[in-house]
Amino acid sequence: MPGGLVALLDDIAAMAKLSAASLDDVAGAAGRAGAKAAGVVIDDTAVTPTYVTGLSPARELPIIWKIAKGSLRNKLLFLLPAALVLSALAPWAITPILMCGGAFLCFEGAEKILAALTGGHHGEESAAITDAKALEDRQVAGAVRTDLILSGEIMAIALGELTGETLLNQAIALALVAVAITAGVYGLVALIVKMDDIGLHLARKPATRTIGRGLVAAMPRVLSALSVIGTAAMLWVGGGIIVHGLEGFGGAAIPHAIHAVAEGAAAPLGAMAGVARWLIGAIGSALMGIVVGGVIVGLLHLLPRPSEGHPAG
């Protein structure tokens, strides 16, 4: 009897160790997958504050909460099952889908650059909506639609890092990535959009007046910097996805050229070689993003717009 109990305890201990190792594997895989999607996360963080610009300050946090719930629903109810089906039935399709998503990011980045250069902007139709609730619903719906694309790219990038895992581990890791990234992105967005209110609160107290005024004065620059960072992240991530994808489709010349330039620039820099290697690679990816995005923008601008159709009658 004691011997059987000892054997049972040994089995339980072995199962506990196996479970712990499995959890460590899942956590490690989720961490790697989340880190790989960091560029898209930066873009998501930079884009979201624009959806509450011009709305009532009292509604900013409720709107962000609505968008966050929509983002989590996108990831867990739609994209996670689709990613698992893709992994099980058509793993070969992951790279082409990633490249399509990368091309979309390049297009978005190139279009933002074009708008900045030409003085064009989007969203004029929002001014025509006078009902506050209708405008809020419209902004939330638009943000959740945009999030679906960015979240799809995040989940696809994460899935690409989980190809060696079991289906169960993939599901757990993707769910962890979805929850962690959503919480991180929208928590940071909430902090950003309320930073001016925090600054005003601090400015009312003599001990923190200077800090508060500094925060209020800095916020326009922070939002402008986020816009630039978001555009750069779109081009860097989108271009990088396409560069890496080309290697699997017989187009290794461009990735090899970027790698050779990065290695050549990094070689004489000693301890800074890793930083230089990464920076040159990121610049090369961003240049690819500008080229791909510019081509797509050019092609789309050549197509007739719906409003340019034949007049009725």
Score class of each variant (00 low, 15 high):
D43W: 04
D44I: 00
D44L: 12
T45P: 03
T45C: 10
T45M: 12
T45H: 03
A46K: 06
V47T: 10
V47C: 03
T48V: 15
T48L: 07
P49F: 06
T50L: 13
T50N: 10
T50A: 15
Y51C: 06
Y51Q: 07
Y51I: 11
V52Y: 03
V52P: 02
T53G: 00
G54Q: 10
G54R: 11
L55V: 09
L55Q: 11
L55Y: 09
S56L: 05
P57I: 07
P57G: 05
P57A: 08
A58K: 14
R59L: 09
R59F: 00
R59E: 05
E60N: 14
E60H: 15
L61M: 10
P62L: 01
P62M: 03
I63E: 07
I63L: 15
I63S: 09
I63R: 04
I64G: 02
I64K: 00
I64Y: 06
W65R: 15
W65K: 14
W65F: 14
K66I: 07
K66C: 11
A68R: 01
A68I: 00
A68V: 03
K69L: 14
K69W: 13
G70C: 09
G70A: 09
S71L: 03
S71Q: 12
L72I: 13
L72P: 02
R73L: 15
R73E: 11
R73C: 09
N74V: 11
K75L: 09
K75N: 08
K75H: 06
K75T: 08
L76Y: 08
L76A: 12
L76I: 15
L76H: 07
L77P: 04
L77S: 07
F78Y: 10
L79H: 04
L79T: 07
L79K: 07
L79S: 06
L79W: 04
L79P: 04
L80I: 08
L80C: 08
L80V: 13
P81Q: 08
P81L: 06
A82H: 03
A82K: 01
A83C: 12
L84W: 13
L84F: 14
L84Y: 14
V85H: 01
L86W: 06
L86P: 05
L86M: 14
S87Q: 11
S87R: 14
S87F: 11
A88S: 12
A88V: 13
A88L: 13
L89V: 14
L89M: 14
A90D: 06
A90Y: 13
W92Y: 04
I94V: 14
I94S: 01
T95M: 11
T95I: 12
P96H: 12
P96A: 11
I97N: 01
L98H: 01
L98C: 00
C100F: 14
G101F: 05
G101R: 06
G102W: 02
G102M: 03
A103H: 05
A103W: 04
F104D: 02
F104L: 15
F104G: 06
L105D: 04
L105Y: 10
L105E: 06
L105R: 07
L105C: 09
L105Q: 10
L105W: 12
C106M: 08
C106F: 03
F107M: 10
F107A: 07
F107T: 07
F107N: 00
E108N: 14
E108A: 15
E108F: 13
E108T: 15
E108P: 00
